[in-house]
């Protein structure tokens, strides 16, 4: 009896069992949560500060900042800014034009490449091709731009002339003067080459997640590869591929350096994609920034804000699509 009592006296009180996190965990969780919020803070700050700088211009120009196609700063005799008009219209058209060319040319090639990688390539060849495409996605845009300027320009010009010769009756393939160099068409081709690796990688991931049982069911029913892809892979992966294409579109819209080097950046509305003039919002910012006065810098900030919101919207839509359609298989 005494032994037992003595024993019980020596046993320490049981540790309190609780689900409450310790102090160290509280600190850890707080720090990680704050760190996790950084992306929200940075995106918010980008929107806030570009708006703060751009608001003076936006307040004057109001909605015409987007619709009007006039970017002029008139100086008086003493070099002071007498009058200025800022409208992004032409560059917005150029942005959409070159980005759409990139998507129209690049996405079919990328999707077919992804089909090839998923359903045709085998073993080490497949691994090598995937590595090469991932490497290409890591090439800097500077490299694409200069390669496009030096190497691609010649053959692209040839194709542009061919297009103009046989399809010149369609207004967008017409040219006011036979200048085929440095056109939105060639810039679009360079952008297409830039987005191909991105869209290929995403499409390949989506195709890889096609449920194997359905693929095998299609083969068991005697489907050829084409019939299987049409009946199983395309319906399954359509949304994800559209999301990948949107991601490529967003990338092409925001591209600066490659467009600046390839395209003859001139501030004018140019619908004729084969004619060597045009630009996009990002390249305008780079072009005008060097000699811009304070007011023009503010206008460029506003242009940056427009570009930021545009790419953010496109990216958000693509992200929703990819997550909605790409996660089923996991």
């Amino acid at each position: 009896m005494t032994l037992l009592e003595n024993r019980s006296a020596e046993i320490p009180a049981p540790r309190e069992i609780t689900t409450k996190p310790r102090r160290s965990d509280q600190i850890f969780r707080a720090v990680v949560t704050i760190g996790g919020m950084t992306s929200l803070v940075i995106l918010g700050l980008i929107a806030l500060f570009l708006s703060l700088k751009g608001i003076s211009v936006l307040r004057v120009e109001k909605f015409t900042f987007i619709t009007e196609s006039k970017w002029e700063v008139l100086q008086d005799a003493e070099g002071k800014v007498a009058e200025s008009t800022f409208g992004l219209g032409a560059m917005l058209i150029g942005t959409f034009l070159s980005a759409f060319i990139a998507v129209i040319v690049g996405v079919p090639i990328a999707v077919l490449s992804a089909l090839y990688l998923t359903f045709y390539a085998r073993g080490p060849v497949k691994k090598l091709l995937i590595s090469l495409i991932d490497l290409m996605a890591a090439f800097p845009s500077l490299l694409f731009g200069f390669w496009g300027f030096i190497v691609l320009m010649g053959s692209a010009e040839y194709w542009a002339k061919l297009l103009n010769k046989y399809l010149g009756f369609i207004p967008i393939f017409d040219v006011p003067a036979p200048i085929f160099e440095r056109s939105p068409f060639i810039a679009g081709l360079v952008l297409a080459i830039m987005i191909i690796p991105i869209v290929t990688a995403i499409s390949r991931e989506i195709f890889d997640q096609t449920p194997l049982d359905r693929v095998q069911a299609a083969y068991a029913l005697g489907a050829s590869k084409l019939a299987m892809i049409r009946a199983v892979v395309i319906p399954y992966g359509r949304g994800g591929v559209v999301g990948g294409a949107m991601l490529g579109l967003g990338r092409a819209m925001g591209e600066t350096v490659a467009v600046y080097t390839v395209l003859n950046v001139v501030y004018q509305v140019n619908w004729q994609v084969l004619f060597g003039a045009g630009g996009n919002v990002a390249s305008l910012i780079l072009l005008k920034f060097g000699e811009a006065g304070p007011e023009e810098v503010n206008a460029l900030m506003a242009a940056g804000l427009v570009l930021f919101l545009l790419t953010l919207t496109v990216n958000a839509i693509s992200d929703v699509l990819i997550n909605k359609f790409g996660k089923k298989g996991r």
Binding site: S39, G254, I285
Partner: peptide, 20 residues
């Protein structure tokens, strides 16, 4: 979602942001 969106920020906008 935001990290994904941030990866799509055009590089020139990143430069403008630091400027502003």
């Amino acid at each position: 979602f935001l990290v994904q969106a941030m990866s799509g920020v055009p590089s020139i906008v990143a430069g403008l942001f630091i400027l502003s």
